[in-house]
């Protein structure tokens, strides 16, 4: 697992975000155990204290839960899982809209373009998976 961290956002925030993306994409399933603090630190090559902080944050947000004497697990709470997905989509759309608005494209044309591009990219990804 290689994650490219930027240097300006807190690393723990980037770790939380990384987990959200994994959850949204279904790479991490509800109830699945997450790596221990130490394992994750060496996988991501970051400070164990940072991982600790990220886990604490995720616990507070309800993304993971810990039962006594067992490893932390991804939440089974549908609401939370749904919210994660929504949050990521909204965030991406926000960024997109902000940058596209400066060009003043009519929304219909934009949607058409988005659809076309999106299908095309999915085809490519699907195609390369067969190679």
């Amino acid at each position: 697992m290689i994650v490219k961290f930027n240097n300006r956002d807190p690393v723990y925030v980037q770790v939380v975000r990384h987990f959200k993306e994994q959850i949204a994409r279904g790479m991490l399933e509800p109830g699945q155990e997450v790596s221990s603090r130490r394992e994750l630190a060496s996988q991501l090559k970051i400070n164990p204290n940072t991982v600790q902080r990220a886990y604490k944050e995720m616990e507070e947000q309800g993304l993971i839960y810990t039962e006594k004497n067992s490893p932390s697990k991804i939440t089974r709470d549908e609401d939370v899982l749904h919210r994660v997905r929504e949050e990521l989509i909204l965030e991406a759309v926000d960024t997109f809209v902000t940058s596209v608005r400066s060009i003043n494209v009519p929304v219909d044309e934009l949607l058409e373009l988005v659809k076309e591009k999106y299908d095309h990219q999915s085809d490519e990804e699907g195609g390369s998976a067969h190679d």
Binding site: R38, A41, S42, N47, P48
Partner: peptide
């Protein structure tokens, strides 16, 4: 060596 820092 950097890996050492993220290990136990």
């Amino acid at each position: 060596i950097a890996d050492v820092f993220t290990s136990h």
